[in-house]
């Protein structure tokens, strides 16, 4: 059950998208996500879906795999879809009390759900094709200018990569502790919400104890290898733009241009 969590999951494969510089993927993903808010009509969505489809096909990540990322947010998708379906004023198809289904409502529902879904899918294709390490390295490089404002960019990036690294470990640990307590008859499924919360205590206490122990051990290990923050640190794999990365940016530009041409960018 707990293994369904897909945040920060990496899908190992050898594809043009995987080989791209992490910075390209971060920038293009951001641009893509922003672009989703610039249009309100069919042509725009067609272009956005097409762009996503091409990237997905190139990335070799299976369709079913990427769709699994939508599962945790399915409820939110459905809810916003419903709200838009029932509460959009316009030409009514049928009405039932306060709620009314309108043509505009149907259109809006489809568009809003699509937009949300594409936002999440766009972000997950980035995490699926970029290892957490590459991601934080890319982010660190992109944010480097903020150093002028005394933002501890390296430290933040390091914290992020450690946090990401620990997710699978803690998930596994949770799984193991839950099984161990289940072997002592612990029951996590029955009872009301309060009882179930209480039944998590035998899992949470050992989990925190082990997380703190691990954190301490990691700090010691870093200390004993003379880690002293970002000052004067060089990279084992320095980020360097190659031809394909330039090409990646170009493709993104083409997408934006296509959007601008096919869609009269909405005034809002």
């Amino acid at each position: 059950m707990i293994r369904d969590i897909t945040i920060g999951q990496y899908y190992a494969a050898d594809s043009p998208i995987h080989r791209l510089d992490a910075r390209v993927k971060i920038v293009v993903t951001l641009v893509y996500m922003v672009s989703l808010f610039t249009f309100q009509d069919f042509a725009g969505y067609a272009a956005a879906i097409l762009f996503f489809g091409i990237v997905l096909a190139l990335s070799k990540v299976p369709f079913s795999y990427i769709m699994r990322g939508l599962k945790p947010v399915l409820f939110i998708l459905l809810l916003t879809g419903m709200l838009n379906l029932f509460w959009t004023p316009g030409k009514e198809i049928f009405a039932w009390g306060v709620v009314a289904v309108t043509w505009e409502g149907i259109r809006k529902m489809i568009y809003i759900t699509l937009r949300l879904a594409l936002l999440i899918l766009g972000a997950s294709i980035m995490t699926f094709t970029t290892t957490p390490n590459q991601l934080t390295a890319g982010l660190e490089r992109l944010l480097r200018p903020l150093k002028i404002f005394r933002v501890p960019v390296h430290e933040v990036a390091m914290m992020m990569s450690i946090a990401l690294r620990f997710i699978p470990i803690l998930v596994e640990e949770t799984d193991r502790i839950m099984k161990a307590q289940a072997a002592r008859g612990a029951d996590f499924e029955s009872g009301n919400a309060f009882q179930r919360m209480k039944s998590m205590l035998p899992v949470l206490v050992p989990l925190f104890v082990s997380a703190i122990r691990r954190a301490g051990e990691l700090a010691l290990a870093m200390d004993s290898r003379c880690y002293h923050g970002g000052e004067g640190r060089t990279k084992m794999y320095p980020l360097r733009y190659r031809g394909r990365d330039i090409f990646g940016y170009l493709c993104c530009l083409v997408y934006i241009a296509a959007l601008a041409v096919t869609v009269r960018i909405s005034p809002f």
Binding site: R176, I177, A180, Q181, A183, R184, G185, A186, P202, V205
Partner: peptide, 27 residues
């Protein structure tokens, strides 16, 4: 689960109660 007692590897990592006796009473 009561009849077949399973002791995991490093079982000490599952202790959680405030006192030893309370932890043993959990099962």
């Amino acid at each position: 689960r009561g009849k077949v007692g399973l002791v995991f590897q490093y079982p000490e990592h599952q202790l959680f109660e405030e006192t030893v006796i309370k932890d043993v009473q959990f099962g």
